[in-house]
């Protein structure tokens, strides 16, 4: 008995990954695979699912609302991901230097990123709502209320507002990662570039940015994934409206599931998965080939 328990003890380390594997297998990998199976059925969530091959995927490309949601999702990401990166980097470059109140400024800029995007969306709703919104009232008192009217009432401006709110909320998150990247660059690199007579922008282009490559990679990838799966901020501000003009694919997935198109909603999820995978993998390939050049 003693030897048996000792042998178990001596070999226990071989099984240390098992709890993680089981937990992840049951609550992530299994649903993922089951989703692929369900996407090939006409399941409505209640009666037995029936195999229908790829019909859901064919239907998707004939579904105007779905295609419109693809457009919204991609437009949102095209606005959100680049702006987050550009402003995150600018903020980091500004707040990296030493000045009084540096940590206070960083704290304030980062603060919105820790709040639930849903609650943050409601706050912007108070500000931007036509008629009663805070911005409307302020503009009204200045007699320029036409400037603030109906930002959320038309599809195009509503999508732009959603992008801006998202960028406003998460710019601090992107900034913090760039700040960490900046701080990991040895000071000697900047000193050497200064001795060589390089100005601020030359140093930025040839020293800072190349050495920020890892931070840029993390930020680009997380921002692509985050903005293509956007959900909360839209639910809080427009609920996908007016009409379906700001509905994103992840909201569509939820609504199709609740609307008893469970099989179809899993097919939409798989399509969304590829919409996310394609730019991420392409970007990672590009980043890798550039790393080799450097």
């Amino acid at each position: 008995m003693v030897t048996l328990s000792r042998r178990i003890g001596a070999n226990l380390h071989k099984f240390m990954a098992l709890p993680a594997v089981i937990l992840f297998g049951v609550f992530f990998v299994y649903p993922l695979l089951r989703g692929i199976g369900l996407s090939l059925t006409d399941w409505n969530g209640i009666s037995a699912p029936r195999f229908i091959g790829l019909r859901n995927f064919v239907d998707f490309f004939r579904d105007d609302r779905a295609l419109n949601d693809v457009k919204n999702t991609v437009l949102f990401a095209l606005g959100s991901a680049p702006l987050l990166n550009i402003f995150g980097l600018l903020y980091a470059l500004l707040l990296d230097r030493n000045f009084r109140g540096k940590s206070l400024a960083r704290t304030i800029v980062y603060l919105p990123a820790i709040i639930s995007p849903l609650i943050m969306g409601y706050i912007w709703y108070f500000i931007l709502q036509p008629e009663r919104g805070f911005l409307h009232k302020v503009l009204e008192s200045l007699n320029v209320s036409f400037l603030g009217d109906n930002w959320l009432a038309s599809g195009n401006t509503a999508l732009a507002v959603l992008v801006l709110v998202n960028v406003w909320q998460y710019v601090g998150m992107t900034m913090v990662i760039y700040l960490a990247g900046l701080q990991s660059i040895p000071v000697e690199m900047f000193e050497a570039s200064k001795i060589d007579g390089a100005g601020y922008f030359v140093t930025l282009r040839y020293v800072t940015l190349p050495l920020l490559a890892p931070a840029i990679k993390i930020n680009v990838v997380t921002n692509i994934i985050g903005s293509l799966s956007v959900f909360e901020v839209i639910m809080a501000l427009t609920e996908g409206g007016p009409g379906y003009s700001t509905e994103s694919l992840s909201i569509y997935i939820m609504r199709m599931c609740y609307g008893n198109f469970t099989g179809y909603s899993t097919a939409v999820a798989i399509i969304l998965f590829f919409i996310i995978l394609l730019p991420v993998v392409t970007y990672l390939r590009l980043a890798k080939s550039r790393e080799v050049e450097i």
Binding site: A17, V21, V29, R34, I225, G226, L228
Partner: peptide, 28 residues
């Protein structure tokens, strides 16, 4: 080999936002 496979699976799944498998997870 098992551990390398586990690691690669985790690495790949980092790219998958939870909304993708929410519906089948709901049925589970």
């Amino acid at each position: 080999r098992f551990h390398r496979m586990v690691f690669n699976t985790f690495l790949f799944c980092m790219m998958i936002p939870p909304i993708i498998n929410t519906v089948p997870l709901y049925t589970l």
